[in-house]
Design a binder for these strands. Structure first.
Lengths: 217, 217, 217, 217
DNA sequence: TATGAATGAGGTTTCATTCAT
DNA sequence: AATGAATGAAACCTCATTCAT
C-alpha cells in the first residue's frame, strides 16, 4: 500500500510555492490599496498564511515590494519581447514598426490587466513623491525610455522614422504617454474602451514619427 | 467707545492665513513624502503650528487632502484659462491651436513646478490603486479629458482638426500623455529638458490631429 | 456655590503629574523585570494609562530609561549630599569621615530601598554587556569613582588617610564594593542583614584607609 | 562485516562538539548584548549553524543560558581551586592567605577576560531585577559567599584573622566587593589598571581581616 | 482659536518555539 | 542529528483623532 505521496513536498518546493503565493498576494494588495496600504496583515491574510511569513521570506517590506516590482517588470518585458519575436520571425521589421508593436503590446496587456500589472502601475505612481523610492523602479523606468530612444535612432537609420526629430525628448514623450494612458485606462476602466485607445495611440505614433512619403513629384 | 479696529479683522483673516499656511505645508509634505507619508506631525511642524491644527481646521485628513487637491486644481485651471485668454484676445484661434496652447501651458508649469503642482501629480499617482479615493480627484480627471474631447470636436467643426479621428479615445490619449509626460519630467527632472519635451509634445499633437493640407497640386 | 475646583488642572500640571506617574511606573517595572522586560505595555498598565503615553511623553524607550536613570541618580546624590551637610554642619569633618558618611548613607538607602533605587542598580547591571548603553549611566559611574578618588586625596591632605595608598585604584575598589554589596544585599535581601553589612563596610574602610596611629614610641 | 570505525565515534563526539560551539557562541553573544539581547538568531549565526540548533540541543533559551552559566562557573571554580592547590602544595597556608589567594586569582582572571567570564558577570547583572531568574545563578552566588564565611571562620580558628569580626556580613562584603570591582573593571577596562586594583584589594583584605600584631610589648 | 495631552488601532519587525523534511 | 519553514506573541513606534484647557 503506497504512502500518500500527495503531501510530500521538498523544502525547496515549499519555499518556492510560498514565495509565489506571497508575491501574488502582495501584488493584489498593492493593486488594491497602494504600496503603503498593503500591510503585512492584509498580505498574509490574502495569502492564507501568517502575518509574519512575508518578513520571514523577504526580510522586510521594502524587499518584498522590490521583488513584486522586479517580478512584474520581468513579466511585462517578456510579453513585449515575445511580441517582437513573433512579429520579426518571418520578415525584417522597421524601427517604426518595432515601436508600434511594442507600444501596442504594452497597452494590450491592459485589456485584461493582471494584479501584477496593476501593481506595477500603482508602484510607478508611488514614485512621484520626491522622497519616495522603490528599489529598482527608477532604474527600470530609465532603461525603458532609453530603449525607446534607441529604437527611434534605429528607425531613423533605416529610414522608417523622420530624421528631423530629436530622439531623447521624443522617447520621454512616448514613454510618458504609454504610462499615462495606461494609468487613465486603469482608473477609468469603465469609461474607456481600451482597444479604441490602442488604435488612437497607433495613430499618434504614426503621425508623429512616420517618415512622410515624398509628396508631389 | 470704539473698539480697536486693527484687531477686528484679525479673527477672520487669521483663520484664512492659518488655512493658507496649512495648505501650503500640506502640499509640500505631499509632494515630498506622498499622501500617506504626509502625516499631521510633519505638516504641523512644517507649518510651524501644532499637530492638532490641521484637524481643527479641516476636520480630517481626507478633507485636508481634498482641499489641497482642489486648491491646486484651481491654480492649474486658472493658469490655463489665462493662457487661453491671452492667446485669443486679439484674434480668433482654432480648436487645434487651443489644444496646443493649453497643453503647452500645462507642461510649461513643470519647468519650475510649485509644491502645489507636484502635490497634484503625486495625488494623481495615489489614485491608481483600485480602492484608493481622493475626493474630487477622479471627477476632475474626467472633466479634464471630457474637455479635451469637446475641444477636439470644436476643432473638427472649424476644420483645424482631421475629421477622421474619434474624439473620445483621442482625448484619453491626449490627457494621459500630458499627465504621464509631466510625471516623467518630475521624477527625472535631472535627466530631461522640459522645453525640448514641450517641443516634442507640440510635434505629436500636430502630427496626430492636424488637418493635412491637400497634398498634390 | 463654588465650582468644583478639584477637577481643574492646568496643562502643565497634568504633564508634570503624568510624567511623574510614568517615571514611577517605569522604575517599578525596571526594578521588577529589568530594562528589557520593562515594556511599554507593562509600564502603561502599571501607571494606569495607555500603552502609548510613555512614547508621547518621552519620545522613545531609551529616552524614558535615561530619564529614570537620571532621576534616580539625582535622588541618590541629594540623599548623600544631605547627609554630608548634616554631618559637617557644626564641625569640620575629615576626608576619611566624609567617605565613611557617604558610603554609609548609600548603603542605608538599601535598608528600605525604593523602586527607583532598585531600578538604578538594575540599570547598572544592564550596562555590563559590552554593547549595552544606557545614556548617562557610564558617565555617572565615572563621576562617582572620580569623586571617591578626590575624597581620598583630600583625606590624605588633611592627614586622616594613609599617604601610602594609591587613590585611583582605591577609589575603584571602594566604588565597586559599594555597588557590589548593594547588589548582593538587594538580591539576597532575605538572607542578609543590611545594618550589620553596613557595619562591616565601615570596618573595611577604616582598616584600609585610616591613618594608623603612631605605634611604639 | 565490520562497520567503518572512523565514523562510529562521530555521532557522540559531533554532538559534544556542536554543544561546545553553541555554548561558546552563546557566551560571546551574552557578553556582548546581554541575556535578552542574545537571540537564537545571533547565537546561531555566530556558531555558524542554523537558528534552530540551540533549541534542538538545549530545549529552550533558559536552559541554554543556565548551561552557559554553569559552564562558566565551573571554569572559574576550577581556576581558583588550581590556584589554591598550587599555593598550598608545599606549605600549609593560613585562612587569611587562602582568602587572599582566591580573591586575587578571581580578579586576575579579569586581566584577560574570556567571553565566558564576561558572560558570567553579565548574567550576574541580569539577576538584579526582582523577578529575574537564571537557573543556578542565585544558588551559586549563595554558595560563594557561604564559602567566604567558612574561610573567615577557619582563619579565625587558626589565628590569622581577627576574632572580633562577624563572619557572615563580612563574607557578604568580601563577595560583593569582588563582584563589584570585577564589574567596574570590565565596564571601564580602558580607564582602570587591573593589576593595581588587585593590589588595592589585597590591601583592603589585609587591613580589614588581618590579626593585628600585638602592638607595643 | 489654538494647543497639547491622551488614546486605540495598526504598522513593521524580532523572537522563541514547533513541525515537517 | 540538523535544518529551515512557519507561526503567534509581543516589542517599539506612528498615526489620526478626541478632549480638556
Amino acid at each position: 500500500m503506497p504512502e500518500p505521496t500527495r503531501v510530500r513536498r521538498t523544502q525547496a518546493q515549499r519555499r518556492r510555492d510560498a514565495e509565489r503565493t506571497l508575491l501574488a498576494a502582495a501584488a493584489e494588495a498593492i493593486a488594491e490599496r497602494g504600496v503603503s496600504g498593503a500591510s503585512f496583515a492584509v498580505i498574509g491574510e490574502r495569502a492564507g498564511t501568517s502575518r509574519a511569513l512575508p518578513t520571514h521570506h523577504f526580510g522586510s517590506k521594502d524587499a518584498l515590494v522590490a521583488r513584486v516590482a522586479s517580478t512584474a517588470q520581468d513579466a511585462v518585458q517578456s510579453a513585449m519581447a515575445d511580441a517582437v519575436r513573433a512579429t520579426s520571425a518571418f520578415r525584417h521589421i522597421s524601427g517604426l514598426d518595432l515601436i508600434r508593436t511594442v507600444a501596442d503590446t504594452y497597452l494590450e496587456l491592459f485589456e485584461h490587466p493582471t494584479a501584477e500589472l496593476r501593481a506595477l502601475l500603482v508602484m510607478w505612481g508611488a514614485t512621484f513623491p520626491s522622497n519616495a523610492s522603490i528599489e529598482g523602479m527608477l532604474e527600470a523606468e530609465r532603461r525603458a525610455y532609453e530603449g525607446w530612444a534607441r529604437n527611434i535612432r534605429d528607425g531613423q537609420a533605416d529610414g522608417s522614422i523622420r530624421s528631423d526629430i530629436n530622439p531623447d525628448p521624443m522617447a520621454v514623450v512616448l514613454h510618458g504617454m504609454l504610462r499615462g494612458v495606461a494609468a487613465v485606462v486603469l482608473t477609468e476602466s469603465e469609461h474607456t474602451d481600451v482597444s479604441s485607445v490602442r488604435h488612437a495611440v497607433q495613430h499618434w505614433i504614426s503621425g508623429a514619427l512616420e517618415m512622410t512619403p515624398p509628396t508631389g513629384s
